[in-house]
Design a binder for these strands. Sequence first.
DNA 1: CTGAAAGCGCTTACAG
DNA 2: CTGAAAGCGCTTACAG
Lengths: 340, 340
Amino acid sequence: MRARSTSLKDVAEALNVSYSLVSKVMGGRMGNTRARPEIIQAIHAKAKELDYHPHPLASALKRGHKGAVGVLIHPVGEEGSEIATRLLRGISTGLDTHKIRMWLRFYSSDEEFLHHFDKRARNEVDGVIVVGIPHQKTMEQIMELHDNGMPAITVFDGYQGNTLANVIADVKQQGFLATEHLILRGCRRLAHLVTGSTPNSNLRYKGFLEAHEKYGLVPDSSLAFVAKNYKLESGESSARHWLDQKSSFDGIVAQSDHQAIGAIHELLRHGIRVPDQVRVIGVDDSPLCQSSPVPLSSVTGEWTAVGALAAEKVVQEIIDHRPAESRLLIPRLIARMSSA
Amino acid sequence: MRARSTSLKDVAEALNVSYSLVSKVMGGRMGNTRARPEIIQAIHAKAKELDYHPHPLASALKRGHKGAVGVLIHPVGEEGSEIATRLLRGISTGLDTHKIRMWLRFYSSDEEFLHHFDKRARNEVDGVIVVGIPHQKTMEQIMELHDNGMPAITVFDGYQGNTLANVIADVKQQGFLATEHLILRGCRRLAHLVTGSTPNSNLRYKGFLEAHEKYGLVPDSSLAFVAKNYKLESGESSARHWLDQKSSFDGIVAQSDHQAIGAIHELLRHGIRVPDQVRVIGVDDSPLCQSSPVPLSSVTGEWTAVGALAAEKVVQEIIDHRPAESRLLIPRLIARMSSA
DNA sequence: CTGAAAGCGCTTACAG
DNA sequence: CTGAAAGCGCTTACAG
């Protein structure tokens, strides 16, 4: 067995002071207490010498906390985008600052969410970060929890409400940046994908329109393709469609990297050169961009930063007891060969 | 604020028994205690009624545990393979069974490992799962920790030692399965990648040889290509090499999905049809397989199962105080278009 | 200015 | 067969 690690008592005894004093000094919570500077110095020195670190459970217990934040992740985005990993990277860093542990669970449906986040689970966390898609029941659950005082931050793609604090990249800005980039590269006839009636897709499309407006261009509505989803196949279909129509176009603004890569595959199959004849850009800057036949330009989802900020905000709700506010992060453009 | 959740005392008072009895009954740890069945019934019933769940911190504190397992992840495999997500999925499920939380950190070098897993960190966990590559210093650290009684399980690709319990898919078997599959599809001249002198690569190559042996075939050593790494570019180079040499080959056994896809890109550029003229297979069954120009066959790394088992094993070490044993998991073949 | 004491919610050796 | 009591390592209102 490993030796018991050093406790408050150990350093108190070594210094012949009460361990309550040590606790106050170490915690920086002196209250009306005003110890002599030399004592404070000595305590800090001894603590360092004995390698004292407060027991994470004991303080949480005393404070009435559970010492953990629930992180419920829906596989947002397509597989291969590494969104979950990036988010978790941010979240784990953010939580660590406050010495809070993670209670991690993956869910893929309303039912699974309810199943995973049952009463027992709720009893084990001080707050929750929910990553995913705002499905009906899941939303209701979270709202109810939040109303009952459970700190909750959402990371919802395209969440429009404002009851819950939501952290996400600015989707409209993604559309704007991607479009502007191709325009600046010289594209004048941009084909673009719209994905069903998802709020995100609509926002990105809005950014697409705004970019055109800024440069005094008018998009050709016949170059819009309504895709079923964000998958590769949708990109292939779109390219096939435009080629079948014999449409003339010099760029493609996709709604995901998968769509963009699907489109590239199809273009290449028809002997059309990327980026020489058609420039292509995706969304998310997923690792896929680099394994595309032509390395793909993209705009970021800023997932690591989103994760870190979400963590910061739950902790804030937990400590301050007041609701956090939503926040949109600014995406960045990553230019690669496909738009060169 | 949310209401305090129900405690042992609440159910004890409601039943007019001591809360120590309730603790014993709920924990199933009766020791020499043998309460009347009706009391036991009543306690269970009341606990259910009041929705009692033991406070996770309190019991861990009492037991001298930290209630958390450290999970240190190195981005094994290439980005886009979603290995981290898959592992975490398994680990989180495994740990939850025992109500243990996660202390998660990502590291990408020996230095970062040491930095993240410093004394403070060690003080916060009951054990550790280390995922990555067995670098010198990292290994030494883990060994030393383990020697000092810290439960530790590694998930090391190609770890050969036996001091630490390692959980991983059977790499040789991956090579065997992939090769056998192509042979059964009719391939007789298999080109293959060997990746530097990494132990994994050597093991997979061994599987490659064994599959040939089983079917009475002799591999053509001129069809071996030594790749720098597991990336896409290596696959492209390999295909270019074979084509330049005017080698005749009807299949490619890669050491990663990225390599396989790189090879496919290159073949297609030269107008060679996959799978009609050349069949291709990768390793890891990453999401990339589905975004390949031709959907890629692969063998699994069983990462979710690996994660679950690793979790199971740390917990076992924590509870039983005896070292766990290494374990190899059997990979599965996933056949797609590229080998049809 | 400093410390003794109560208590967070449990577990378990011990007494009855 | 059951319960009172001590204690895990902290924090903090309270007394001196």
